[in-house]
Computed example of a mutant assay.
Amino acid sequence: MTETPITRDRTYLRHFWHPVCTERELAAADPSGNGPMAVRLLGEDLVVARLGERVTAMADRCAHRCAKLSKGKVEHDRLTCPYHGWSYDASGACRHIPACPDLPIPGKARTPAFECEVRYGMVWVRLDSSYGCTEIPRFSDWEREGMRVIVADSYVWQTSAERRWENFTDFSHFAFVHPGTLYDAAYARPPVVPVDRSNGELCFEIEPAREMLASLPDNSPLGTFVYRCTMPFTINLEIELYRRPGRYVLWTTSCPVDDATCRNFMIVARSSADEADPEAEDAVHLAFQKQVLGEDQPVIESQTPAGPIAEEVSVVTDKVSIQYRKWLRELASAAQTGAASFDACLHTDVIDRRPAPVAHADLRLNAQEQAQ
């Protein structure tokens, strides 16, 4: 079988912001609480450290003899190389060479530093800021009053970020991978829904059948699913719960570690005013999500190649992933043309003016259809 990646050149991803670790993970990387911590983004080895009041990201390589700076330590708001003690500031410039402290520091004594910000309890990095038209993806409920927000530990899958995104937004797999957890296996025929591009987001929604509640556990967050997906790898899923009143949001994003590996981040937010023990409920919600991920992971990691290819056979119910892949290809092509073209491709709205989504209740397979 011929294998043609949906985007042959992934360098366009360098123009986007990607999370590389959580603040909690950075603090745990060293007893100082400041790092350093080794991370990897788009095949590049980076080091993240808190230098003073600022978290910085730079290439994980000393300019002197290429030792990994992530093996060093933070001292006096500088990152010190473990090999010869060269120390670097947040801009990546070497500020001290112990072997020759009285001589001028060579101008080439620096390591590349990258844009780095902390948001939603995560450290975000943008490798290429030259286009300047991308923003850190939105999370709808970070500061919403009355919401309890949990930033989960990150986890690594041996697959591409594109595959992980498609897994999370794939309606057709619910009945087969998550029967009795997220879905009822009797509802195996998903609806075909409108898919819009709006200000850098892919937007769509689905209304599962309420009848499925009878076969699902009490903590299964079944409801109307409203997806707002910031390109390229972030999903903000707002759920209007059927079982009880209240708001529930599941937010996830994938960091493209390399072509075949992704580090995934998750936030769970819920209204918890009526909960007697919110901390205990935190554990319940995280355990449920871990169970769902455990059902998905072996299937997704079995996909070969690790990234989606053009030769895969798609059908009409794959509309979300079809539109997603189309936009990725367009972004990759536009990035080769320049900033204006890339910006226009990312932010030009494309509205799918089809009728409203069909409820799953109207699409349930009858016993005869299931037997065929």
Rank of each mutant, 00 (worst) to 15 (best):
I239D: 09
L293A: 12
T224M: 13
A371N: 10
Y131A: 12
L222G: 10
T261P: 01
M122G: 10
G35P: 07
S321M: 11
C100R: 15
I267M: 14
Y88M: 03
S172W: 07
M1S: 11
M147C: 13
N167A: 13
K290D: 11
Q291G: 07
P101H: 00
P194I: 05
R95A: 04
R144N: 03
A28V: 00
P305T: 02
F174Y: 11
P217T: 04
N167V: 03
Q370S: 06
A359I: 08
P194Q: 07
V48I: 15
K319D: 05
M212Y: 07
V320Q: 13
R78H: 14
W251T: 06
S91L: 05
F204D: 11
F288H: 13
Q291P: 00
Y155D: 09
A332N: 03
W17N: 06
E115C: 06
D343E: 15
T230H: 14
R329E: 04
V55G: 04
Y120M: 11
V118R: 04
L331S: 04
L293Q: 12
E143S: 12
V55Y: 03
G132K: 06
E3F: 01
F225D: 14
L182F: 12
T111D: 07
R197A: 09
G121A: 02
L103A: 11
L13S: 00
P278F: 07
A152T: 13
R329F: 00
R95H: 05
D196M: 09
P305L: 04
P36I: 06
Y227R: 09
E281T: 12
P208Y: 09
V123M: 08
R164A: 05
Q323H: 09
R197E: 14
R244D: 00
L250T: 08
N219A: 03
P179K: 04
